[in-house]
């Protein structure tokens, strides 16, 4: 990737447990403008997936950008992506860079 294009990774999280099991902080108009993973709970779908890590910043969820979304809006979008029965997975585009 180019210097102005930080590395991002697409992670598909299968809904393998009844919870997603991540905690996020941040959102538009806060010190952390994009949601960042601060906790991954053991036994949750995200933990089972094994590819999401604490500190990663979430750029997109199922192709929808997180940019410009306030915290509650970002959290709602992720919760709905996990809850919907239309898909058996949630796609996260994440980056290590903040």
């Amino acid at each position: 990737p180019g210097l102005l294009e930080p590395t991002s990774t697409l992670v598909r999280v299968a809904k393998s447990a009844s919870t997603l099991g991540i905690a996020i902080e941040g959102g538009a108009n806060t010190r952390q403008p994009l949601p960042r993973i601060v906790t991954i709970q053991r036994g949750g779908s995200a933990h089972n997936c094994g590819q999401l890590k604490v500190g990663q910043v979430i750029l997109e969820v199922n192709g929808a950008t997180m940019r410009g979304r306030e915290h509650r809006d970002a959290a709602r979008l992720i919760a709905e992506a996990f809850k919907t029965k239309e898909r058996d997975h949630v796609d996260f585009l994440v980056t290590e860079f903040n």
Binding site: G21, A23, I24, E25, G26, T30, R31, T39, H71, F82
Partner: peptide
Amino acid sequence: REKRLTLPPSEITLL
């Protein structure tokens, strides 16, 4: 940089 410092911290949500 100044602006960054004035922005509030975020709440944390468990999902």
